[in-house]
Simulated scan of single mutants.
Amino acid sequence: MAGGGGGGAAPKHDDFTPHPVKDQLPGVSYCITSPPPWRNLYLPHAVHMLKSIFDRFAVLFTIPIVWLYAYLLTVGGAYRNAPPKTQFHCRTDRSGLIGGAPWIRVPYPFQWGAPTFDAGEAFAMMAASFVALVESTGAFIAVSRYASATPIPPSVLSRGIGWQGIGILLDGLFGTGNGSSVSVENAGLLALTRVGSRRVVQISAGFMIFFSILGKFGAVFASIPAPIFAAMYCIFFAYAGSAGIGFLQFCNLNTFRTKFILGFSVFMGLSVPQYFNEYTSIAGYGPVHTHSRWFNDIVNVIFSSKAFVAGFVAYLLDNTIDRHEASVRRDRGYHWWDKFRSYRTDTRSEEFYSLPFNLNKFFPSV
């Protein structure tokens, strides 16, 4: 303690001076002078969302764009001096479809008069229905494959063919001019969109029934140029065909038996119908030309179907060549399908194939 006088003044401390901000946070200058990384934050999510949208609605986006382009070419006179065949396929105003169609037209049974019966035509339509049955079976299998359902039991296939027969009967009553068949394009569309909900099919059917009354609406769709449909078919049929090829994974493709059956059936399925179609286009009648017109129609219609010829040849060879050998059954892949030969064997079949609106009570699948 210092003596004398007043107490000594307290020592004076220097003012607190913090370190510069850049020394405390070396990266702060980057945050101040650079914008936030919006691209890295939001762009991946936006791309993922847009990808799912374009996957689901690819057809709805592409058709209007190309259709509008064809309309602009038509209005601009691009097809004015084109050959008639080009104008027929590419113009959007051909034959006055939209202008000549009525606004409202309600279809009703026998609108074209009383039905007539001809034995020859009946046999020809039976042959066409049989061919449609074979092609529809392939479409059923493709749809079940892309919808991630269990393999279709035979009873469900029979039920689907029966409903198809009811559709053909309604076609005859309303005079549509063509029969009903399973749309292979819809199987490809299911694979493209990956939407296998029954609700979508039910809503689509309701829209089609409602808009069938509006004649202008149907005429607008009829004005879509044929090349647009051809482009869609290239995609849809590719998916439908790949579904059938995918089933070959259950077969033993290393055996010469399987290779011969596969190659020969595909070759005959492409060449025989091509011969029948070219012969008919040149001669005006099919290769089978006898005095019985109904017999000619049956044979020519059946062998003009690529799916039927290929399937028939493959079925015939697969059930005749070395069928009773022990190793052939495994090479054919039959052991994979044993548990799906009955509707009640797999409990998931009820979930996938039961009819809506409690119709299973009247149309059971057993």
Rank of each mutant, 00 (worst) to 15 (best):
L214H: 10
H19D: 13
A310R: 02
D331E: 15
V106P: 03
K259G: 03
F267S: 13
L97I: 10
L190Y: 01
M232P: 06
E325K: 11
N319E: 05
S271W: 01
S34D: 10
D15H: 06
L359F: 02
V366M: 04
W103E: 11
P356I: 03
G167N: 13
S180R: 11
N296C: 06
G269T: 06
W38R: 12
Y108P: 05
F308D: 10
G4W: 06
A142I: 01
S292W: 07
P37V: 04
Q274T: 14
F57T: 00
W163K: 04
D15R: 05
H335Y: 11
A187N: 05
V220A: 08
V266D: 03
S148A: 12
E351D: 07
P11Q: 11
F295S: 15
A122G: 04
S265F: 09
G160C: 08
S304C: 01
F54H: 01
A124K: 15
A307P: 00
A283P: 00
V288S: 04
A119T: 15
F130V: 08
R39S: 09
P151Y: 12
L316V: 10
P26S: 10
T193H: 04
P225S: 10
V21S: 14
G160N: 07
V328S: 11
L189E: 15
T17R: 02
Y79P: 07
I161S: 08
V59M: 06
L270D: 00
I298C: 14
P287Y: 13
I213S: 07
L133I: 00
G196W: 07
Q249N: 12
